[in-house]
Write a protein that binds this DNA or RNA. Sequence first.
DNA 1: CAGTGGTCTAGACCACTGG
DNA 2: CAGTGGTCTAGACCACTGC
Lengths: 257, 257
Amino acid sequence: MTTETSPAPTASTAASAPAFSPLYQQIKGLVLKSLQSGEWKPGEPIPSEFELAARYKVSQGTVRKAIDELAQNNLLIRRQGKGTFVATHAEQHVQYRFLKLKPDTGDLNSQGPAQRFIIDCKRTRANADVAKALSLRGGDAVLQLRRVLSFGGVPTILEEIWLPGATFKGLTAERLSADQGPMYALFETEFGIRMVRAKERLRAVNPSEEEAGLLQLTTPTPLLSVERLSFTYHDTPMEWRRGLYRTDTHYYDNELN
Amino acid sequence: MTTETSPAPTASTAASAPAFSPLYQQIKGLVLKSLQSGEWKPGEPIPSEFELAARYKVSQGTVRKAIDELAQNNLLIRRQGKGTFVATHAEQHVQYRFLKLKPDTGDLNSQGPAQRFIIDCKRTRANADVAKALSLRGGDAVLQLRRVLSFGGVPTILEEIWLPGATFKGLTAERLSADQGPMYALFETEFGIRMVRAKERLRAVNPSEEEAGLLQLTTPTPLLSVERLSFTYHDTPMEWRRGLYRTDTHYYDNELN
DNA sequence: CAGTGGTCTAGACCACTGG
DNA sequence: CAGTGGTCTAGACCACTGC
């Protein structure tokens, strides 16, 4: 690793700025590349700080700072005495990392695991909205699926999910139904896609008759509409979903800092 | 600053653990104490890293790590070449730091600043729920106020706010109406209270007739109910509010990591 | 130009994990 | 006990701000 200020993978803001990029940022980029390429897979340990320092020809402290930031972004997990591991949506004691819905009493697992019912799962073509969200061309193949999540036997979430067809070749309703565990964990093992972060837009809405029926609502109930765009490495959008959450027995939990 | 492992402000988990507390955590605690005591006020610079290092008898790097964490928690703001400043809800280019509502088109300020109308502001006694949230005894004095926020002339948010009466002595509707700028900024300058973080619970609800009227809703519209508990230093709850947000023209924006 | 925060290094030692 | 991440130090140098 050279010490001189270099153009580096940190794209300058297009114009005149020389774009000074600290060493640890460049290291961060290299580590990210190895993560994305699958050199280190979810759940596995990455090389120790000393090994990485030798590999990149920098001091351990510099590697440390790079890893610190990646760990804060939930891409890596540090475990003192054991090593640094690639984060995963499976096994992570924090299952359902992106699901912020909590029951008014108890916790999500107090009534056992969630039950999942696939309503349908079909290949189709992206409409304008979905194409735009997923950075596809209108008409590109997409996989569209709907499902209901129940907690303690009560249907609570109705979701509609769109995935790029090219990336998720071979994903079927059967494959999804057979699986235990979070869908995002399956994406990792079967398709090498790791969801890294997401944006959500929340609204209060009245469900359509079909939607109310799928959630077995007996009285008119406003629902929380949650539109989510999920990203994999390098801010690449990889999933668009819209959920309808019952919020008479649960609430959407959020922390502000 | 002693280097030996000390009991320190880091409360041990009640039982047998000796509770090792790193030096920089202890420094963090001392800095926090100075923040809370008002030695350094919102908007003001704190001493330089070298000065603090001398004061606490530790190396600059240790002070740095302490400040880094406080800056990440939005308690401090670092400005290269200038210094480190106490964060504030005023002036901060990010006004309305805790307000996650965004318009479907444009941004919150595209139609000028928010208009605020105080509906009422009265001193009363805490009911059980409010008392519990604010860690008061039932019947303690509380200040209760309601207001409407409008954007571009459209009433969009109806809020009901409860504050501990003892801390906010002298806060009146007149005082609030006279003020420009965020309420949390006024809390800092007038009462020495700085809101540091908050928790929100979201639900979809149907407004009562009175609520619909105050928001000038002409058709039945489900609203986003946002219950917020705000904390000042040391996780002390200081404000409870419930907002009703119109989400037909706006949405609640959230980032998941 | 002096003063601030930001980066980088090299080395020592500590705390935690597993064999 | 060896190997990992975690803390702490001391010092050098860089980038940014304002006078």
